[in-house]
């Protein structure tokens, strides 16, 4: 399956990927509204730019082959889709036990700041290439099969 890969060597730490993710998962689909209004009501990007000195990397869910989060999920909210390979998340099922957050060694799961639910990357099902990858100005993020 195609996944999002980061090469920190060319990540320039601009965080446009975070903004793109935010917009893509907003209701307004409008960066300005999403950033100004929807963030206040709990919208947050699924990815995260890590920093270590000048080295940066935009990291998000790896959609593991054998996902630790799915093993840990007590409610069935997280599942590995055998067809697409994506680790899917059903917000209605989630009970906010944070088991997945604890189990994911890649830190790819965030807590929703308001709802007792988690938030994670869905690989932008409505796009052919995830928003973060499309927005990366230096192609440090790629969407490919490896």
């Amino acid at each position: 399956m195609k996944r999002v890969f980061i090469n920190p060597e060319f990540c320039i730490g601009c965080r446009l990927c975070e903004l793109a993710c935010l917009t893509e998962h907003s209701q307004s689909k409008d960066l300005i509204l999403a950033y100004r209004d929807e963030v206040a009501s709990g919208l947050l990007p699924r990815n995260r730019v890590e920093e270590k000195g000048y080295i940066t990397a935009s990291l998000t869910c790896r959609h593991c082959e054998d996902p630790y989060c799915v093993r840990a999920c007590i409610s069935g909210a997280l599942q590995k889709d055998p067809e697409t390979g994506r680790v899917t998340y059903d917000e209605d099922q989630c009970v906010g036990c944070w088991s997945c957050l604890m189990a994911c060694p890649f830190g790819s799961i965030k807590r929703h700041p308001i709802k007792e639910k988690i938030v994670k990357c869905d690989l932008c099902p409505d796009r052919s290439v995830p928003a973060c990858v499309s927005s990366c100005p230096n192609q440090a993020l790629t969407f490919e099969e490896k």
């Binding site: 890969f5 090469n7 920190p8 060597e9 990397a57 990291l59 490896k146």
Partner: peptide, 13 residues
């Protein structure tokens, strides 16, 4: 380790 888990072509530098 980063390469093993995140991206085999990654360079952290």
């Amino acid at each position: 380790v980063f390469q093993q888990f995140w991206n085999k072509d990654a360079r952290i530098r």
